[in-house]
Design a protein around this nucleic acid. Sequence first.
DNA 1: CCCTAACGAACACATTGATTGTTCGAAACG
DNA 2: CGTTTCGAACAATCAATGTGTTCGTTAGGG
Lengths: 253, 253
Amino acid sequence: MSTVERHRLIAQAVREAGTLTVAELADLTGASDMTVRRDLDQLAAQGVLERFRGGARTLLLRGDEPPFALRTHEAVDAKRRIAAEVASLITDGETVLLDSGTTCLEVARLLRGRQITVMPLSLQAIGVLGDAPEPTALLVPGGRPRAGEGALTGPLTLASLSALRFDTAVLGCCGLTAGDGMTAYDLDEAAVKKAVVTSARRVIAAADGSKLGRTAHAYVGPSSLVDILVTDATAPADETSALEDNGTTLKIV
Amino acid sequence: MSTVERHRLIAQAVREAGTLTVAELADLTGASDMTVRRDLDQLAAQGVLERFRGGARTLLLRGDEPPFALRTHEAVDAKRRIAAEVASLITDGETVLLDSGTTCLEVARLLRGRQITVMPLSLQAIGVLGDAPEPTALLVPGGRPRAGEGALTGPLTLASLSALRFDTAVLGCCGLTAGDGMTAYDLDEAAVKKAVVTSARRVIAAADGSKLGRTAHAYVGPSSLVDILVTDATAPADETSALEDNGTTLKIV
DNA sequence: CCCTAACGAACACATTGATTGTTCGAAACG
DNA sequence: CGTTTCGAACAATCAATGTGTTCGTTAGGG
């Protein structure tokens, strides 16, 4: 078992049980207690759980978004396929806005070296595209990164968005339904997504099936603002057809 | 010999000779020709030199600034000492502007975890501070990164700077003299440095001795806008005393 | 106040990834 | 058309990381 697998296993177990001891987790993972202790320290630093002497307890409430470091390793190949489709929808010469989130980060990797101008809205994507080879042009938006997520938000981000217009925006989202529209976990991020939609002529949403039919806290806008939705086959059929009725073009990979 | 040492050796040799063959460089470095070829490809990608069949020729004119990747490994311990002094001049709770350049990047490393708000003006520094532990707060300026340097410039950067005020700015520079003032190699960077000075209450310049008495192309402003200059003992004494006469406080480490 | 369990530091070991050199077939230049 | 250079592939080497063990220290409970 790799390190990240064990981290996910521990995070999930602690989240479900609420509280677990080091010994229980060592037993569960098959690793030594020292390794479990090191894992718990790392997960605590990521804000996933809280350490106490002898074990750990969860910090994530039900419905909370799992931290970025864990989401990165969930539904990996679905995200990769979705990202590949999104990248293929982008034409050379375009100016592209790239949202934060793990799926969009995967898109960023595929855009390296493409002949486009891209403005990524997360620190991670900036890192990926920061040393991209020619002819890719990078634009950095201002902003304050959300802890753990690296998603840029705030007045500087909104100002950067309002100063520019883009051919295509690639949007990630936490929830998307025909009824409740697009939603995000974080209010500031939702404000950024709203501005993104305003600044872009074409909006591509990249969301694996688990996001469809789900509703998060912060409202972004109606589903009709999504021109193209790229998702995978795990998306519920009733939801996708309802989204299609609202005017969104579907790409299921 | 490490990889970066060999790269520097090759870059310097090609720069001085103008043109060298793979065989000559393999002989010089003691590495195999395959390794030299790989090195040349990497240096060509960095814009240091131009590949041709059988060897490479320099792209750097005399007086040009060597690329970032090479400067990082020059005067390493002087930069580190200067950076340590700069970091010690910054008080907890301050808001700090951090310029681009290799010396300021070293400062960024020392600011990780400090209780400050910091806005770095280069991609590299953003990368270093992007996952800084609490209680460091990061602000990202907008901008277009200069190829190879990662220095953020342009209207978005200027807008971000004009929207904020800072307690302290840490400025790197390419040249600083009492007579010609502060100068940079790049016009856009000079414009950013001007805005930096305007947005900061206190200006600390971090420049190793080689920068003093040197004048580059783009004018930033008179030396009197530097409140504190942190440099090392290789700085020419006549220059430092002239700067001191202009009102700059000296810290020689 | 003491005892026990948990912790963290230090070391050894394994595994992984990066770097380098070699070989060989392909391509470029004269 | 021959020679030289190049690039891909493979194997060897080295560094870095992750893991487990040991042992002295510390925190908390009785």
